[in-house]
Design a protein around this nucleic acid. Structure first.
Lengths: 394, 394
DNA sequence: TGACTTTTTTTAAGGCTTAGATTATGGTCT
DNA sequence: AGACCATAATCTAAGCCTTAAAAAAAGTCA
């Protein structure tokens, strides 16, 4: 039943243009000849398409490669200064705003601490807007060259212009986050779950590069995940897929902050782990508290690895991924010491007929959420690839 | 990263042709004018494409619709006799072979009983091949008009020409099922997991018609499921996705026939239910035994509904479906009396931020596996839509 | 019978890709 | 140094495809 779109002969060109741009973006500098091989297009088509892109300054030349007996090939690459993307991580402890060029080099950043029970949407939005102004000023990038702002938030983000956010841990219930931000800026806006933006960052630049079926698990205070199916993020019918944190994994009856019981997150999220170890920590203190716990050792940790493995085996059975990545600040901390037990527990709980699934740590650190949020903007750019000005004023 | 294919101007026509054929196949009889609206193509294109299809006898006229003041529209539909598809259900208790025309009307069928511990691959293949000969003879359809044979088998089916099958319950470990069948027939062959073929049948003709994100749960002796993502079946990296049966759901420690513990199937599959109720039944006797249990009532049943609801809530959290369908012979039997408790248990275990998910029973009965297997053949036909002869001899 | 509707087919125009020919650019051999 | 070769990039002619508009077909209604 999968929908196929009507296509005109011009869509071919648009599609090929996007293909070429993707190949150039992810395939580093390449000559026109290389692009023929990468895209399967003929030399003539590559030639005219690249001429367009060069004209528009989307692509620039990047030196030559000496040949051994022939005309040297001219390398091309996406112009990193053609446009910029702002990524925002709305986390439990802070709002982090970063400005990237198209090459995903960070040009400026700003952070605003949040305190427990002070996750007022208006405050968060004020921080966000101030952050945008700050990174623009610090980097000297004019606003009209910014292709958009991507935001990663906790909880479920409904589709639609208002981007309604449901985040139980923030006490947000259908907060029109998108509408609030749009009231303060005219930049194109993209809002998604933070675990998903992290997943996209790992998919594009981290431990999942080139993998087409993968799962990226985010472990912070809470737990979420990104499912990558056939190279794209799987979102489900209401953009709520991947709510790994509230999977029911055991019959111990442990209450979860979502109001339910037996949720995965209540056992293996940082808050859950600390609580099970008898440590009460304010959200801002969880990182050091977890670090101390890991250093001191605790019987809770072995059980945590077991439970994570159990959860991951469920993901393997249902999604059959090629690879699993563990990220998020707590996930990265846990992974340092517990990766082997987690791998073992996952294997034990997985049927033998499944091929063994590599489990690795995220390669981008804890900043991946903001970077991934910026990739939402770049994704749109790669799809359409209009000139920067045209997009910003649309 | 999602791959885009290079396309030539002729691919446009091929794509539009397939689009048109799909619209006609699923949209019932329609006039050329209707097809313009359905596909978005211009009248001219629809006219030439349908002319081709009529020439090739893929499509036939199906009467006229009287107009009120204008040229009457000529209705077109896919020619049901243009080709035929054979679907095979390799189940725990029998091998069922059915022959369908393109309109999915059953033209002939044959069954071969299997007995416990007699799931020898060679025997199954012999039954299958004999069944194919029988349905051809009974229906009078010449073999060269058969577009292919689709087979639904238990367990995991690896991609590749040999179609290696791993089915622990049959004792099959990497059985080259496809190779064995191909040795006995030259018809195009499609092999997939039986739960997935059933899912595709429900998606095309049953309780999931027109739904683009759904989950179809198969409950028989064991348990499996089909994940429909964006109108297509989600298969994962090794075609093993959707192994719902071996999801870990509780910490009761109940052993599963897969060798693991706490598997969903060990609790809510027919075998598991009967076992928990203290009834030992040979695979051939499970249906009547379960029927008796349901009639007599048992405290095990309420718990079963609870556990099914728990499992379904996990699916909701991870996949965010628009709808859940319960099928399979045991699922349909359980659903008659337990659908409400299952719905309630699912809702209780699902976070409030999820929209409520309708849970319904399969609409095609227990024969859906074989029908779905035949749809694998039709799916290929709709993709390429070559003439019947050309495909069979390829 | 003639005006009006609606459906289909035909026709002219414009765009796209490809394959092959041509031009550009530099190395290699004598 | 100059002729010749190899590789890269561009140009050109040919073939398809879709669309929009015009024309034809087939009825209804006054």
């Amino acid at each position: 039943m999968s929908r196929t779109e009507r296509r005109t002969v011009r869509d071919l060109r648009r599609g090929h243009r996007a293909m070429l741009l993707r190949a150039l973006y992810f395939g580093g500098p390449a000559s026109r000849h290389d692009l023929c091989a990468a895209t399967g297009l003929s030399a003539g088509t590559v030639s005219t398409l690249t001429a367009d892109l060069l004209d528009e300054d989307v692509v620039v030349e990047a030196g030559q490669v000496d040949s051994d007996g022939g005309r040297p090939r001219v390398l091309l690459r996406v112009n990193p200064d053609h446009g910029y993307a702002i990524g925002v991580d709305v986390g439990e402890t802070q709002v982090r705003v970063e400005l990237f060029d198209l090459g995903m080099t960070e040009r400026a950043g700003a952070s605003y601490a949040l305190h427990s029970a002070r996750h007022d949407p208006e405050l968060v939005v004020r921080h966000l807007l101030e952050g945008v102004d700050t990174v623009l000023a610090d980097s000297g990038v004019p606003a009209e060259r910014v292709l958009g702002v991507g935001v990663g938030v906790p909880g479920i983000v409904e589709a639609g212009p208002d981007a309604l956010v449901h985040a139980t841990t923030f006490g947000w219930n259908a907060v029109p986050f998108g509408a609030l931000v749009r009231a303060g800026t005219s930049l194109p806006l993209f809002v998604d779950n933070g675990a998903k933006t992290m997943g996209q960052a790992e998919l594009w630049f981290g431990s999942c590069r080139g993998v087409s079926d993968a799962i990226i698990v985010f472990i912070g205070s809470g737990v979420g995940c990104t499912v990558v199916a056939d190279g794209a993020i799987y979102r489900g019918s209401a953009r709520a897929a991947g709510e790994l944190g509230h999977l029911k994994i055991a019959a111990g009856g442990r209450p979860c902050r979502c109001g339910g019981r037996d949720c995965f997150e209540a056992y293996v999220g940082a808050e859950g782990i600390l609580d099970r170890a008898g440590i009460a920590a304010d959200s801002a203190d969880q990182r050091p508290a977890l670090a101390r716990l890991l250093e001191a050792g605790s019987p809770v940790l072995a059980g945590t690895a077991e439970l994570i493995g159990l959860g991951l085996s469920n993901l393997v059975h249902l999604f059959d991924p090629e690879r699993i990545v563990i990220g998020g600040w707590a996930g990265l901390m846990l992974g340092e010491g517990l990766l082997e037990p987690i791998r073992a527990a996952t294997a034990v709980n997985t049927m033998a007929s499944f091929p063994p699934v590599p489990i690795v740590l995220g390669g981008l650190g804890a900043d991946a959420v903001a970077m991934g949020a910026a990739t939402l903007v770049v994704e749109e750019f790669l799809r359409g690839a209009q000139a920067a000005g045209a997009q910003a004023t649309a």
